[in-house]
Write a protein that binds this DNA or RNA. Structure first.
Lengths: 135, 135
DNA sequence: TTAAATGCAAACGGTTTGCATTTAT
DNA sequence: ATAAATGCAAACCGTTTGCATTTAA
C-alpha cells in the first residue's frame, strides 16, 4: 500500500459515480502533481479487479468507472448533455435472469443503458425552437 | 449510389448481426480489394444514420454494428468465447419505459447487455477442471 | 458540370505497456 | 533484500479526418 494508491482509492470514492481515468487523474494531481497517469489507470483497474468498481462503456470513446453499489441500477444517458442518471431496476433484473436462464447462461453482470433526452435538454430545445420562429 | 456503396450495403446485410468495420472490410475486399477501409467505415456510419443499424459497444475496444430489427432485443455476451447471443425482451422494454418516464426522460434507444458464461464454455471448463485433477 | 464519394495516408485519442527507478514490507 | 509499485515515454489500435482524385447525377 503506497501513498499514491491510498490517495487514488480515496479520490475515486470521493468523486462519486461514472469516473473517467482523466477525471480521477486531475483530482489526484491537485493533491500531488507528481503522480503518473498510468499509476492512476493501473489502480483504477485494480479497484475493478477487487470488485469495488466496474467499467461502464457508453460508446463515446471514454471508459467510465462505476462504483459497485448494493443496488442494481441502469443508466439514463442524455444524448445531448451527456449526463448520466441512475435508476433502480430490481424488478427488471428478475426478468433478465429469467431470459438468461432460457439460454442456460450464467450471468455475471447486467448493463442497461437507456439513451435519449432528459427533461432539461428538451425544455431548452423547445425554447430555442420558439425563439427561432419569432426572429 | 456508387458500386462500392452498393457492395458495402449488400455485404453488411449478408453478414448478419454484430458486424465490425474490420469484418465488413474483409468481406468487401474479397469482392473488390481496391475498396478503402475508410469507405467501408463511412458507409457503415451512413447505414446507421439512415436508421438501418446501430452501434453496439461491449467495452472490448471494437465497435459493432447491429442491424436494427423489428424486435427489441438484448445481448448475452460470453466473457470467455466472446459470442453474442440475442434474446427478446418485449416484456422488459415496457418496464424500462416506465422507469424512464419517472425521470421524464424521452427514450431513443435501449441497450441491455448481460455478460457471463455460456453453456458450452462452462461445460468445457468443467471438463478441463476434471482433467486437471486426474493428471 | 459539380457536388458527392472514394482511397490513401496520416492524425487522433484513449488505453496499455516496457523499462528503469523507487519503495513498501 | 526483493517483489511490488511507480513515473515516464512510447507503443498500440481502432477510429476519424484531410486532401487529392474519381465518379455519379
Amino acid at each position: 500500500m503506497t501513498p499514491q494508491r491510498e490517495m487514488i482509492f480515496r479520490a475515486f470514492f470521493e468523486l462519486g459515480e461514472h469516473v473517467t481515468v482523466a477525471e480521477l487523474y486531475r483530482k489526484v494531481c491537485e493533491k500531488n502533481p507528481a503522480v503518473g497517469y498510468s499509476t492512476v489507470w493501473r489502480n483504477l483497474k485494480l479497484i475493478c479487479k477487487v470488485g469495488l468498481a466496474e467499467e461502464v462503456n457508453l460508446g463515446d470513446g471514454v471508459t467510465r468507472y462505476d462504483r459497485i453499489t448494493r443496488q442494481p441500477h441502469g443508466h439514463l444517458y442524455c444524448l445531448q448533455c451527456k449526463k448520466l442518471t441512475e435508476f433502480e431496476m430490481n424488478s427488471i433484473t428478475d426478468l433478465l435472469d429469467l431470459a438468461a436462464k432460457q439460454y442456460d447462461f450464467a450471468v455475471e453482470g447486467v448493463k442497461v443503458e437507456i439513451s435519449g433526452y432528459c427533461r432539461s435538454c428538451r425544455k431548452m430545445n423547445e425554447r430555442l425552437a420558439k425563439d427561432g420562429r419569432t426572429n
